[in-house]
Design a protein around this nucleic acid. Structure first.
Lengths: 137, 137, 137, 137
DNA sequence: GTGGTCTAGACCACT
DNA sequence: GTGGTCTAGACCACA
């Protein structure tokens, strides 16, 4: 399994798990319909209390990323989420703000930042971008 | 001043402040001997409880990053370790990864994301970018 | 406080709390900006574990119904939530379906159901409807 | 058959089934001596695990609402308590309250809500309403 | 076996 | 004082 957790991070564990599953889905490591590890199993593997895993799964379900079937298991959702365009943009703008703040503190040159973005953006596109093709971990 | 805080982040506010001052020191944005804003003043500027600022300053002082002279102020002490270009790039790439992951789940297509980045990037540049003193909160 | 809980209900406690706070907001019992009881205080008053209260509050916050300020408290949100029109309609249709199913099993006559709806709808309108004016409990 | 189940509800499925059969019996929709669908058949029709159906039937039998004759089938036993008109109205009003609460938070205006109700109500009537046998799931 | 809810109790971040 | 996170462990609903 691809989930690893840093218990000393200031980022809550359940949030780290959410982020990694989202990321796995975005890169195609996890495909729509795939079964996720059970709460208990993932708990055992990464040594985190099942409640914490459950909380992460519940939040992912609320966001429409995964779907649970009672007594059966948890699966990567295949139906796309619905979200308003304003919300979409707001979420992305928030991350961009974080990016620019970091760049400022690191005294990143504008051109340099632009170049790195371009570089990573191209990588992302070739991996399928919003199409989410399969990519090996 | 260069401190920007996201009150809704999972990262504690005092930690965000520490991180940003460390970054500023590491890149030379802040030079040894430079005077920092007073707890009270910074508190006012970023709308955060003075206790929280004080806690950040205490931790920075404990780590030897800054020094407080009673009745005079707080100053950046001897130059701390400079950050390498690789490390800088890693930090930016981490945020970009988050951006692309989020974009995937928000069903951004490539052009759309590119456009939003371009748009925000231009705004940032015109507000000073990495060269400027103050960036709007 | 207006929250009362039936521990024997099949509806989870945290869900009962959510429902009642939503209802209080909708009827004007709680006005935007009002401070809610603290997690611990409400916990004490209704004899439910603080974790359960906290879970209800967190879910309400995710839905934009309430806002929390760290170390200060929890308040009824004053900014309206944003939601897509499809989602709006879907949520309402789900409840309507429940209504019709119940009406069917109770052998409610069509006209009778329509009359009750009309009656309650008029009451609701006179209480302010979507404007949410103040109403005594 | 008249059983409709919402798998995502917080109310356990077996409980929804019990409730609906009780309602049907209380209003005369089901008469004493009527044969119920077999566990297997109902399971197939509503897409629920037979164990869950069986559990509902067991509980109904324990309460004396139904009787099982081995190898023959399950039948509604002697007429249970009839539900009063007030109780019927209360049940409907409870759902309507939920509807209005939700409408408030979704920022429905009165006309909009009325329109949606009218629309769904008409659909329901044309599908049989309280008179019909089967309502689409 | 699966996920969901709840409790008791601890510790942290923040005002 | 406030809310947020985590653990340990129990019991329930469902397949």
């Amino acid at each position: 399994m691809f989930v690893h957790v840093d218990a000393n991070s200031h980022v809550p564990i359940y949030h780290q798990i959410i982020q990694q599953i989202k990321s796995a889905a975005a890169t195609g490591l996890l495909a729509p319909g795939d079964k996720l590890l059970s709460v208990r199993e993932l708990s055992r593997q990464i040594g985190i209390n099942p409640n914490t895993i459950a909380r992460a799964y519940q939040e992912l379900e609320r966001d429409g990323i995964i779907e649970t079937i009672r007594g059966v298991g948890t699966f990567l959702s295949s139906t796309p989420i619905r979200i308003s365009n304003e919300d979409k943009k707001e979420r992305v703008k928030k991350i961009l703000k974080e990016l620019f703040t970091e760049a400022y503190h690191l005294q990143y040159d504008e051109d340099e930042l632009y170049r790195v973005f371009q570089e990573e953006f191209d990588k992302w596109k070739s991996h399928g971008g919003s199409e989410g093709k399969d990519v090996e971990s």
